[in-house]
Write a protein that binds this DNA or RNA. Structure first.
Length: 624
RNA sequence: GGCUCUGUAGCUCAACUGGAUAGAGUACCUGACUACGGAUCAGGAGGUUCCAGGUUCGAACCCUGGCAGAGUCACCA
């Protein structure tokens, strides 16, 4: 019979699972994998630390669940040193671990500087996020994207991967030409410096101006004879004039508009590499990048490499030709090249990968860019943080890359997330209901300032130090508010609630950390020797069990690309600490051992909170 | 219309992937040691988990059929 005695305190859960598996084998002759043993933490209304669900063994045992629970419990108590006691309620076997075990665990966790982080696994994962267009500033939608990308990258790093953070900058195309054209026509050589406008907002101003001028032109045209006869000739029955012209807008831009024509000509000139247009393009994009950089810095994010669409938009063509030879694609009579994906496991459709005139589509570039990245980094996995409107695109892309036999094809993942709505409904740039990223950051910091002033806290602190704290608090509120929501769900962004600092918020978690720092400062170098502490209280055990779960949460959140798991974990840990703090005194504990134990417990909680929040891109202040 | 995603307290979100009496926050009401920091804690009230069937010891979760919302079905990006 296997004995489970002295062992690594970090692995008690697998040991318990293996114990159950062995017990089931020994008692009922049933083979079960240890991983499949259903082990969960015991609900707080019952006595115990971990709970085994015994229903799965009723068939093999031919006994009542209660009896099975008793037998399994007795076996585990007999064979596993750390199991001190057990009780059975209905089909649930609650295991009580010994205090000695928990003391050992705390000792191990508190002395491990990288607790929760996995050793390097030698694998490279690339995370693509942000990836804005260069015609206007970043907004709330980008913020969700950036926070998801950043936190996923941090989590994967903690899980042992070598992470490369990249973006693909959409720096070319008709949109940037619109800004360029408006600036050239109406800008009068104005610059961000001369106007005092942040440089990406400056470019955005001209993008908006183009839209306005175009709308003016379009409205004027609608009264022309040409427009009138087009409406009569093409309208669907019952379609009002207003409805018709709303639907006709794109066609008008492409076929009738003078401004549209100029913009398209500019795009052609850009493609023909005309110097004047290229120079203007470089200048305006340069302005945008300066502005973006400032915003990224404020958000505390950075990238390892930027890919620019102007460099990559011709990539992939050769691979498509090769794929045609390999019969992965087929060619139509007009010369266009297609992928037939109708036999994919969840069936997809036919998809074009190269136009009849030999030019690229989005898919072509994405194929080429993926290959380029593999050459650059030798990636084992690639994660694309892109909104869920592109779900289908990525299904197709991944299927194609798989058929092309790309070595990283099994490691592709689309981190799809839902759009951000406002309480008033969808964000629409045309209706001016877009929440600007810079404004938002400024607002949450202002709110933090208002809060701290109302409280009269930290009045003694000098300004730069206080500003730094306010930045941490404000950003914590904003980031946590967004990250706590499961990515694939569409979320409602309520501006008032996003600056909340009480309840389930970033500052609430920070406050737990700050309280601990305060205790530790006051404790000075009081004894940390808690080996004589004998009776762990229930509120303390809850914290220990929660700390124990941390590495598992890191692993799970990373592997499922879901930072919200970590956010919820941090909140729960902070919540338990606040309760513990209220129920027990640390510095005035009944005994020296209790004080030492609680100090070390608190310190470990603080470390885990700081570490977990860092994985979300949220920093901890020492005071607040 | 086809396909995909979502639907849980008034509101914003959880639920360890099929486990015990579905949990937090917020808003509302009530309370907390002359305070290891009250950005905290405790209590109250708040539920047909969109609906109807099915699977089983057990379903918010799986299956079938509906309903509602969103997205997508371009030689656009």
């Amino acid at each position: 019979m296997v004995q489970y005695t002295k062992t690594n305190s970090m692995d008690i859960l697998p040991i318990l699972q293996q114990g159950v598996a062995n017990a089931v084998q020994a008692l009922y002759g049933m083979e079960v994998g240890a991983e499949s043993v259903n082990m969960q933490s015991t609900r707080k209304e019952f006595e115990g630390d971990y709970t085994v669900v015994v229903f799965p063994y009723t068939k093999a045992a031919r006994k009542k669940p209660e009896a099975i629970g008793e037998e399994l419990g007795a076996y585990l108590k007999e064979n596993i040193e750390q199991v001190q006691d057990f009780n059975v309620i209905k089909g649930f076997l609650n295991l009580v671990l010994s205090d000695e075990y928990w003391l050992t665990f705390l000792e191990d966790a508190s002395t491990n500087a990288t607790y929760g982080r996995q050793p390097r696994n030698g694998k490279v994962v690339l995370v693509e996020f942000s990836s804005p267009n260069t015609n206007k500033p970043l907004h709330l939608g980008h913020i969700r994207n950036i926070l998801l990308g950043w936190s996923s990258a941090q989590l994967l790093d903690a899980a042992g991967y070598d992470v490369k953070k990249v973006q693909i900058v959409n720096d070319r195309g008709i949109a940037i030409c619109k800004s360029m054209l408006a600036w050239r026509k109406f800008g009068k050589a104005e610059t961000p410096q001369s106007s005092g406008i942040k440089s990406d907002h400056f470019v955005g101003k001209y993008y908006v101006m183009f839209e306005q001028k175009f709308q003016e032109e379009y409205r004027f045209w609608q009264h022309s004879e040409q427009a009138g006869s087009l409406y009569k000739g093409r309208k669907k029955e019952e379609q009002s004039e207003a409805e018709f012209f709303k639907a006709f807008k794109n066609t008008y831009f492409n076929e009738y508009s003078a401004l549209g024509k100029e913009a398209r000509e500019m795009l052609l000139a850009w493609e023909a590499n005309e110097k004047a247009v290229r120079d203007l393009w470089k200048q305006m994009n340069g302005w945008v990048y300066d502005g973006f950089e400032e915003t990224y810095e404020k958000l505390g994010v950075d990238f390892d490499k930027l890919y620019y669409e102007s460099d990559t938009y011709l990539l992939g063509k050769e691979s498509v030709q090769q794929g045609l030879k390999d019969a992965i694609f087929y060619q139509k009579e007009d010369g266009s090249i297609w992928a037939d994906l109708t036999d994919a496991k969840p069936a997809l459709d036919h998809k074009i990968v190269l136009r009849s005139d030999g030019t690229s589509v989005y898919m072509t570039q994405d194929i080429g860019t993926a290959q380029l990245r593999y050459q650059d980094f030798g990636t084992d996995r690639m994660v694309y943080v892109v909104a869920d409107e592109q779900d289908y695109h990525f299904k197709v892309l991944f299927e194609i890359l798989k058929r092309m036999g790309e070595p990283y094809a099994d490691g592709l993942h689309h981190l799809s997330y839902g759009m951000v709505d406002l309480p008033s409904g969808k964000m629409k740039s045309r209706e001016g209901t877009v929440v600007d990223a810079d404004d938002l950051v400024a607002e949450v910091i202002a709110e933090a300032r208002k809060n701290i002033e109302e409280r009269g806290e930290l009045v003694d602190m000098d300004k730069p130090e206080l500003d730094e704290i306010l930045r941490k608090i404000g950003l914590a509120a904003l980031k946590f508010f967004i990250i706590k929501v499961s990515p694939k769900k569409r979320m409602t962004f309520n501006p008032q609630e996003s600056v909340d600092m009480q309840g389930q918020t970033g500052p609430y978690v920070q406050n737990a950390f700050v309280r601990i720092q305060s205790i530790l400062r006051k404790a000075g170098n009081a004894s940390r020797n808690f080996s004589d502490y004998k009776t762990i209280e229930s509120g303390e055990k809850e914290l220990l069990a929660q700390i124990y779960a941390f590495p598992t949460v890191v692993q799970s959140a990373a592997e499922s690309y879901d930072p919200s798991e970590m956010a919820n974990y941090c909140y729960n840990l902070a919540q338990r600490f606040h309760k513990f703090y209220h129920d027990y005194s640390v510095l005035r504990a009944d005994s020296e051992e209790a004080k030492a134990f609680r100090l070390e417990l608190s310190r470990t909680v603080a470390n885990v909170l700081e570490s977990g929040m860092e994985m979300l891109g949220i920093e901890m202040p020492e005071r607040m």
